[in-house]
Structure formats: structure tokens, C-alpha cells
Nucleic acid binder design. Structure first.
Length: 365
RNA sequence: CGGGGUGUAGUACAGUUGGCAGUAUGCCUGCUUUGGGAGCAGGAGGCCGCAGGUUCGAGUCCUGCCACCCCGACCA
């Protein structure tokens, strides 16, 4: 559809570049679905662009890969490896497929986003041409890219623990929840007043805060509930706090608690939220890096896959044949050839043939 | 589509050789509680997936059907 439209819209170089983005609900037949990761119906964003030159289209594909990786890392606190897909894993019709790969806590990899340099393949297939400055007819150069609600699944699996969801502050729908603790009606009113004042103060500083004054649940119940829901920061205000002009802050990421003064709360909390965001990212990054194993032999490869999982950095002879055989024997695929991959001569772990670089293998979602 | 499993209270499950339908949790009422999913007492709640069959008697045994879950092949 996009390309049929392109055909009617594009006449000359003055029409280029053409950048289209659409959000679409997609329905696909799936043999087997997986919650969030592979659902029969899902929402995605797809971009399609047409350019006058190859370099421009390539630049666009790379730019979007950066947009996706920045979002993953800085907002979702989920480190990703930017890379190129092998011919085998490449999107049909693409000249080059780029991807961002993340590692989940169970040791399996997930593709979090992808962008493609399509060359002139689609232009030729749909006959989309333009007149260049010299009035010569040329096929347009294209890129496409997308992410989907699969990111939600990745987010959940990247950070959550046995107590439930853990959300990075920058995308948490509620960043701070205030839980009042009281023994009688008189205290309830006093604490209520204080809590509302604090809530308003935090709100004025742009913090997304919820005050849970529901009287039907005990504080303990609320503590557990908000942990389950992944609220980054919980603030408890009770009689003792009222007495000493303090509040109790509990971090969701490391489950630590501290008692702090009511003075200067907004700035303290803004700092804490930043710290949680950074800490979540660093924790995921350490985990990821600790689970990239370099191997030299296929036996080692299988052992690591079996006992540890994660990414495996190994030499590969560059053939689809070898890649497919490894997949058949181990279910592991080449997730990507990292963009900044150093060239290094070696021997393919499977065929023993000459290899120019290591690539990243993993079992993937 | 192939292989495996499960259907019993709102939810999660137990139910022996065929013999009164159970436990936990949740729910309702009351009192005491409230700084980590409160305690005690009392109470309500069931087409045992559906349809047949065997039997004096079926949650339990037999036959057929239906639904859901897991694994595999497909895929982002």
C-alpha cells in the first residue's frame, strides 16, 4: 500500500525525501502466540522512506536505529547491541537489516527494534521512479523501520524480579506513591493534610505522584501492591514521621528504605528517580556484559548455551549453511554482527574454516 | 497440525477401595487492629466442564463431546 502510494506521489527529486510514519494494528496468523512478544494482534509503528540517493537512505536507516537504541537505553533502561543481521536473518527485500538486540534475565535474547536499508529493491518491484536534476529517470532508494508492543514484553523481562514489575522512572505511569499510616481518625486527618501538601509540592516539580488514601486496605497491603506494580519510589508517612518531620522512602529497584527530612523533598526525589533510572540501566548492562561469553570450539559453545545462556561471541565462516546447521543443532541463531565489531582472524567454531570476525549467537524469543 | 496435561466454591487446589462436597485464600457481619499483603469469632458461597452408560449408590469407573493450558513446527 505504501509503495503504491509512493508510485503516485513521487515524480521528481523535488518530491524527495519522502518520510512516512504510521501506527498500525497488525493481525497475523501465528502457530503459537506468546504474551506481549508474539500476539495474534499487536500495535506497531512502521516508517517508510524514499530518497534520491543510496547514502541518504542508508543514513535514514542508521538514524532510526539510533532513535530506537536511545529510547531503549535512556528511557527503558534496557541496554541494546546495535548490529547487522546475517543474510539468513535479513528482512526479505532488504539489502541490509539493522537491529537492536537486548538480553533478558533468563539468558535469552530479544530483538527490540529493526531498521532496513532497502536499496532499490522495492522501487524496482513497485516501479517507483523519479526524475533527477539532470532529468534522468532513476529508481528511488528506500528505508523502513519499526518497533512494536513487543517492547513492553522486553521491558517487563529486562527488569522485573520475584516481587513483580520494576519500571524505570522515566516511563513509569506513577513515579512516586504516598502511603499514609495511622492509628486513629485524628492521626489520619493530620497525616492526610501533610500528605496532600507533599503531593502538591511534588506535582509542582513535575513528579508523577499518587496519594493512596484508600481506607479499605492496610499499609502493608499497599506496600506489596505497589511493588507488584513496579512503582519506582514509595513514600510512607506515619505518626513517627509526623513527629519528626520526616518521611520513609523505599526504592523499588534495590528494595532499600531510608528516612529523610520533609524539607527539600522534591529535589531529593528528582535525584533519586534519576539514580534509580541509572542504576536500573547499569544493573542490566552489567548483567548483559557478564553474559557475553567468548568461545573457541563448538563443544564450548553448546556447553555455555546449555548451562548459562546469554550471548556467545564466536567465529563464524560467514555462510548461511553453517548458520542453519548451528541453529538446527542448538536452536541458537546469530543475533547480529555488532556495528563496532573488530576484525579478528580465527577459525569457525562449526566448520573450522577461516573467519574474519566474531559474531553474537544466542537463543532468542 | 502433532505430542502431553488439566477441567471440583470468586481464585488456587485436595478428594484414598465407588459411600454425607473439602482445604487455603477471597467475600459478608462484629469487635480489636493499621510502620510489610492484620487477628479472633460467626456466616454466605457448588449443575464436581457437558451428554450418555455401569451400579442400590458416581467427583471417583466406562464411552463420546466441549473448553483451557503446556511443548514442538511458524514468526517480530
Amino acid at each position: 500500500m505504501i509503495w503504491n502510494t509512493y508510485k503516485s506521489w513521487i515524480r521528481s527529486y523535488r518530491d524527495l525525501p519522502l518520510l512516512i510514519n504510521q501506527w498500525a494494528n497488525v493481525v497475523r496468523w501465528e502457530m503459537r502466540t506468546r504474551l506481549f512478544l508474539r500476539t495474534a494482534e499487536f500495535l506497531w509503528q512502521e516508517g517508510h522512506t524514499a530518497h534520491a540517493t543510496s547514502a541518504e537512505a542508508m543514513e535514514e536507516a542508521r538514524r532510526m536505529l539510533d532513535v530506537y537504541s536511545t529510547f531503549s537505553e535512556e528511557w527503558m533502561a534496557m541496554p541494546v547491541i546495535k548490529g547487522i543481521k546475517t543474510a539468513n536473518e535479513r528482512f526479505a527485500g532488504a539489502v541490509e537489516t539493522f537491529c537492536i538486540e537486548a538480553l533478558m534475565q533468563d539468558g535469552k535474547a530479544i530483538q527490540a527494534g529493526t531498521s532496513h536499508f532497502l536499496g532499490q529493491n522495492f522501487a524496482k518491484a513497485f516501479d517507483v521512479t523519479f526524475a533527477n536534476k539532470e532529468n534522468n529517470t532513476e529508481y528511488v532508494w528506500a528505508s523502513s523501520w519499526g518497533v512494536s508492543t513487543r517492547l513492553i514484553g522486553a521491558l517487563i523481562m529486562a527488569h522485573s524480579d520475584d516481587k513483580g514489575l520494576v519500571l524505570p522512572p522515566k516511563i513509569a505511569p506513577v513515579q512516586v506513591v504516598i502511603v499514609p499510616i495511622y492509628k486513629n481518625e485524628e492521626l489520619r486527618i493530620a497525616i492526610n493534610e501533610k500528605a496532600i501538601a507533599i503531593k502538591d509540592e511534588l506535582k509542582a516539580h513535575g513528579i508523577i505522584v499518587k496519594y493512596d488514601e484508600d481506607e479499605r486496605q492496610t499499609p502493608g497491603w499497599k506496600f506489596a501492591e505497589y511493588e507488584l506494580k513496579g512503582v519506582p519510589l514509595r513514600m510512607g508517612i506515619g505518626p513517627r514521621d509526623l513527629e519528626s518531620q520526616t518521611v520513609e522512602l523505599a526504592r523499588r529497584d534495590d528494595l532499600t528504605k531510608s528516612t529523610v527530612s520533609m524539607q527539600g523533598l522534591p529535589q531529593l526525589i528528582l535525584n533519586l528517580l534519576d539514580e534509580i533510572q541509572t542504576s536500573l540501566y547499569n544493573k542490566a548492562l552489567s548483567f548483559r556484559d557478564a553474559n557475553i561469553t567468548t568461545v573457541e570450539t563448538f563443544d564450548e559453545f553448546k556447553k555455555v548455551l546449555d548451562e548459562n545462556g546469554g550471548f556467545i561471541s564466536a567465529h563464524w565462516d560467514g555462510t548461511s549453511e553453517t548458520e542453519i546447521k548451528i541453529k538446527e543443532e542448538t536452536k541458537a541463531t546469530i543475533r547480529c554482527i555488532p556495528l563496532d565489531n573488530p576484525l579478528q582472524e580465527g577459525k569457525c567454531i562449526y566448520s573450522g574454516r577461516k573467519s574474519m570476525q566474531r559474531v553474537l549467537f544466542a537463543q532468542a524469543y
